[in-house]
């Protein structure tokens, strides 16, 4: 997995609540058997019209936000399906950090598995970052995972919480499966105990 430590980049404002996974990557793009190449279809139905042309006023189509690396969004971001195609599309576009008042559970998990940092902050702080993001490409935000801070273009510092295990994995780019294999003995002994207690499983 790709590491995430520090990121300074353009933040795109997407002030919509309940952004669901069908908006992030519509179902017709779930037919791929690869993890890459989905960035072009990120937010497809908002980003392109019925003829496949770009919708000029959609935020990621505007010149100042085409290279955004941070997304600031509304409450309950990523709700809906478990499709990991959603974080794959976000990452393939070039966004490595999403900031919102809250996230849907599965989407939140999926981000960490793909080197994307989702940051949940109180509404007032998201509002402040949204205003900062609205300044365009000259307003660059900095996200520092080690220090657990977001710094606005004006130098205002906002602290965020992150699960220590997930932080450790992101900072070091660790593979979950390899980590779990280190606990193989515990899995073996659980399995033999469970086979005694619940043989029908």
């Amino acid at each position: 997995m790709d590491k995430f430590d520090q990121l300074t980049g353009i933040a795109a404002p997407l002030p919509i609540v309940n952004v669901d996974t069908d908006m992030i990557i519509p179902k017709q793009f779930l037919k791929t058997i690869k993890r890459t190449g989905l960035g072009v279809n990120l937010f497809d139905e908002m980003r392109y019209d019925d003829n496949g042309n770009e919708v000029p006023d959609f935020v990621l189509n505007t010149p100042q936000y085409r290279d955004a690396e941070i997304l600031v969004a509304g409450d309950n971001f990523g709700c809906g399906s478990s499709r990991e195609h959603a974080p794959w599309a976000i990452k393939d576009f070039g966004i490595r950090c999403v900031i919102a008042p809250s996230f849907a559970d599965i989407f939140f998990n999926n981000c960490f598995k793909n080197g994307i940092l989702p940051i949940a902050l109180p509404q007032e702080q998201v509002d402040l970052l949204m205003k900062d993001a609205e300044k365009g490409q000259n307003a660059r935000m900095t996200v520092d995972l080690e220090a657990q801070t977001v710094t606005t273009s004006d130098g205002e510092v906002i602290r965020f919480d992150v699960d220590p295990f997930r932080k450790h994995c992101l900072l070091n780019g660790l593979d979950d499966i390899a980590l779990t294999f280190e606990k193989a003995a515990a899995i073996d002994s659980f399995e033999s105990k469970a086979a005694q207690e619940r043989p029908w499983v």
Partner: peptide, 19 residues
């Protein structure tokens, strides 16, 4: 019972566990 992403599908296939 709950939904998981594809990275977790791979994790369960490989280890029969979930973090």
């Amino acid at each position: 019972a709950h939904g998981i992403g594809t990275s977790e599908v791979e994790h369960v296939l490989a280890t029969q566990t979930l973090i």
